[in-house]
Design a protein around this nucleic acid. Structure first.
Lengths: 219, 219
DNA sequence: CTGTGTGAATCAATTCACAGCT
DNA sequence: AGCTGTGAATTGATTCACACAG
């Protein structure tokens, strides 16, 4: 019931998936969704779906299931997806450029509002319709219009420095694509996407032929 | 000691990080590494480091710590990083192109040997020094030289079809960048990197100001 | 005295089982 | 009948505590 604190991390990760697959089901015209269907679509179990949702309230109708549109709206509100997030990308190499133009962002309320780099050869150029700005101007830019999330797509060695700059500028959520363990103050949240570690995980599994159900998660 | 099966997933994820930070320490000339140092570098606890390693054997010297080079070599062997992995990238849009040229791959034994797409406008073009091939030729290409890992960088709606093609061609490990839950036979392992879910996770946290230690993992 | 290796205890998450509503 | 919501039981992972080695 309607508690809001201390939600376990795996639960939040699954909520993201419920929300996405609900949206898809709604587009397909589905009106009622039982936990079994939601579970099958997201790789969870029906009990998990129900318990996850029960952290926030009782959204279903016994004997029937969940109203797809209503549940989607509840999830959208719960996850803060009803408000647009101002996102910046720091580091405009291959990965950063690709992220800046990633179509799944804008369509889900994550608005890429600025790109930053420290390389003079890149500053001032247009990438994905945005002008690359000097990382040195981040702090003052944020004073004018604050940034919700910074995506770090910089080389391994620069990641900690860049994180410090972003945190000093007031950004409280970072998505880090460098294979670096960032040190940040406790009021800042970091999520990391480490492509190399993912390949290494697969390598371990290939080396051990560990048959185990495939792990699928958001980063 | 020296068991090889049923290693918990979080352990493998941490092993990747131990290996990486050991390599870095070795480059800096460090010879002996206590579990405390390894833990501080990777965001784990010293007990975790020791227990994780104890799944595979006793590599340390009591009262001293671990020999950096020896432990790195042991980890490299355990994770199968001593053998080169043949990797392909399917989907050569912005994300796929960036991944094909990601410098962290080649340098760690992940050799990108081919790129595939289904878009005739892209097939035959050079991307990151490789010619883009027709996805339809994947199966026969794999018969000549098998592929260890396929990276899927295709749109959401195509991901399952492409996964099926890769699996049919004999690929047993997939790294999926589409926000889709792939259905694969049990002998195939899927890891997913979902950038949208990561942003949504951050959005949840911003909406709830859930103070909780930052989560950093290889997506 | 420092630091590893490891069983025991704690903490967290998943799964079970079932009461209650439609 | 079918399905949700939820305490209870179970499984799994982390942390503790300490014997042992240099």
């Amino acid at each position: 019931m309607s508690g809001h604190s201390k939600i376990p991390e795996p639960v939040v990760e699954r909520l993201c998936r419920y929300h996405r697959y609900l949206s898809r089901a709604i587009r397909q015209g589905i009106k009622q969704v039982p936990s079994r269907a939601l579970a099958a679509m997201t790789g969870a179990t029906p009990e998990q779906v129900r318990k996850d949702l029960s952290h926030f309230g009782a959204f279903g109708q016994r004997g029937v299931g969940y109203d797809a549109v209503n549940l989607r709206n509840q999830l959208r509100r719960l996850m803060g997806l009803d408000q647009t997030r101002r996102v910046i990308v720091i580091g405009v190499g291959h990965v950063g450029s690709a992220l800046a133009g990633y179509p799944g962002f804008e369509s889900r309320g994550f608005q890429v509002v600025a790109l930053y780099d420290n390389n003079p050869a890149r500053i001032g150029h247009m990438v994905q319709g945005l002008k690359v700005r000097d990382i040195a101007s981040l702090a003052e830019d944020c004073q004018i219009e604050p940034v919700d999330i910074a995506i770090l797509a910089v080389p391994e060695g620069a990641a900690q420095d860049v994180a410090n700059i972003a945190v000093a500028a007031g950004v409280r959520a970072l998505l880090n694509f460098a294979p670096t363990n960032l040190e940040v103050p406790p009021e800042v949240l970091v999520r990391s996407v480490d492509m190399t570690s993912e390949l290494e995980f697969l390598s371990f599994w290939l080396a051990h032929k560990q048959s185990g159900a495939g792990t699928q998660s958001g980063a």
